[in-house]
Simulated assay, not measured.
Amino acid sequence: MNYLENKTAIVTGASSGIGKAAAKALAENGVKIVAAARNQERLDALVADIRASGGRAAGRVADVTNLAEAQALAAFAKETYGTVDILINNAGLMLFSYWSDLAIDDWNQMIDTNIKGYLNAIAGVLPIMLAQKSGQILNMDSVAGHQVDPAAGIYCATKFFVQAMTESMRKDLGVNYGIRANTISPGVINTGWADKVTDPAGRQAAQELNKIAIDPDDVARAVVYALNQPENVTVNDLIISPTRQNW
């Protein structure tokens, strides 16, 4: 049974990678998509692609690190489709450094995007979901939310935060209000991240690791599975990783 038909979903970070793949997969299952990202051109291309395939989609440029923009995004979704049934918190940032590098700007960027961005998006949709007494919030996590790498301390910490906040949401929003919250924790995904590593040695290592990576479409199928459940079922956490990933 398709429990997703005619639902409305906000997908952040929808212009590329997992967000783009998830938006398209959900649209194929009858979900009305509100795609959010900072790149207007890529958003327009995604919306056009979904519509050309017979789906329903609208795009809105939004920076979720800004609370007002996140709230405006939720209001736009409700005005466009009349409801907000699903939030996929996906916009994220992964930067690598050792503690001795004192990469403070990188630390702050990851905290702003991976923690505050998620919280802002939740703050935007939660009043709507509370009024409806229903909804689903999927916080995209990572295997980095389950184990720690010495060169990714802050990134891992942000993903551990996502694990903790989602479990709290499940126990509060799920139990008391019927608003389901869950996480998906991907392993190495081929989203082009390896080519963005600035340190030459680090980029080479990342590119080597990326050889075993799985595709965003693989994660998108997990997103559909996690969300396409009856109202009395919550998939708490789903770890999706390459078969040959040994951590």
Rank of each mutant, 00 (worst) to 15 (best):
A151W: 09
A151H: 14
A152T: 11
G153N: 12
G153A: 12
G153I: 13
I154V: 15
I154D: 01
I154F: 00
I154H: 03
I154K: 02
Y155P: 07
Y155V: 13
Y155G: 04
T158Q: 01
T158K: 03
T158M: 02
T158N: 04
T158I: 07
K159Y: 05
K159A: 06
K159W: 02
F160W: 12
F161Q: 01
F161L: 05
V162D: 02
V162L: 09
Q163P: 08
Q163H: 13
A164K: 04
A164R: 05
M165G: 05
M165I: 14
T166R: 01
S168W: 04
M169I: 10
R170D: 04
R170V: 06
R170C: 02
D172W: 10
D172N: 15
D172C: 13
L173Y: 05
L173W: 05
G174T: 14
G174S: 12
G174E: 10
G174N: 14
V175I: 14
N176M: 13
N176L: 15
G178Q: 12
I179T: 12
I179R: 02
R180I: 08
R180T: 04
R180W: 02
A181F: 04
N182E: 10
N182Q: 14
T183V: 14
T183K: 02
I184R: 00
I184E: 00
I184V: 08
P186I: 08
P186N: 09
P186S: 11
V188R: 03
V188I: 14
V188W: 00
I189Q: 05
N190S: 15
N190M: 12
T191Q: 03
G192H: 05
W193N: 03
A194H: 00
D195W: 01
K196D: 06
K196T: 15
V197F: 00
T198E: 12
